[in-house]
Design a protein around this nucleic acid. Sequence first.
DNA 1: CTTGCATCTGACGTCAATGTCAGGTCTTAG
DNA 2: CTAAGACCTGACATTGACGTCAGATGCAAG
Lengths: 122, 122
Amino acid sequence: MRIGDLAARAGVSVRSLRYYEEQGLLVSTRSPSGQRQYTDKEIGRVRFIQRLYGAGLSSRTIAELLPCVDSPTAQNADAAWTQLHQERDRITQHIEELTQARDALDQLIVINREHRSRLAAR
Amino acid sequence: MRIGDLAARAGVSVRSLRYYEEQGLLVSTRSPSGQRQYTDKEIGRVRFIQRLYGAGLSSRTIAELLPCVDSPTAQNADAAWTQLHQERDRITQHIEELTQARDALDQLIVINREHRSRLAAR
DNA sequence: CTTGCATCTGACGTCAATGTCAGGTCTTAG
DNA sequence: CTAAGACCTGACATTGACGTCAGATGCAAG
């Protein structure tokens, strides 16, 4: 599987895949001519990376986490434990912030509705 | 109240306040010598802006929303209605994504715990 | 009056993930 | 074989919300 196929099947750009490799998030074997070769399991890996990005993790954080998933050792498992809980807390807090912000927006929506009905009444 | 005080009391940087003004989110009166003067109510406004930023709104979107809050007219109220609902939906979706991502992280945490206990048993 | 801190404008720096372009090589369908 | 399209590396461009610096001016305390 070449890079364009993986990009299409994982729903990301070719540029992003090369960037992931540059950041150590993704590995590829190379054809004799130097073209990247992927197997089907990379699709899942890329989607997984995407989800972590979606959660707001940086490529650096992801790069620190992935080795622990790939081949757990005592050291990286301990380091990962800290990271994982930090990120989990961060996400939880972010969700709370967003919920509050959405509540604020809802108040604006109420105000807006009042304005609209008042203006429409003229 | 000068810009440094407002910055301190609203919990943002002086640079940010000037940026907000540049983006049309904040207005200031000027002293004869050109220094920005603020009243206490700007504190709430800045905090409000911060919450919208926290919700992921861009300065452009905020700039489009604020006039409707400040002085509602038929036109901006209609435009704002669309914006508000779009942003509300976006936030809701974002919350869902984050929740999913947190679930994914929780699975990693479980895996990590297994690794740790397995490694600790040696 | 001076010293030192706050403020002003304007401009360039930053960071992260990606877009985009250039100039060259590979692969594949016809 | 050839042309088109995918791929390669390397590099510069982009976006947004600021940080930071320079050089000039304002302001309050001693």
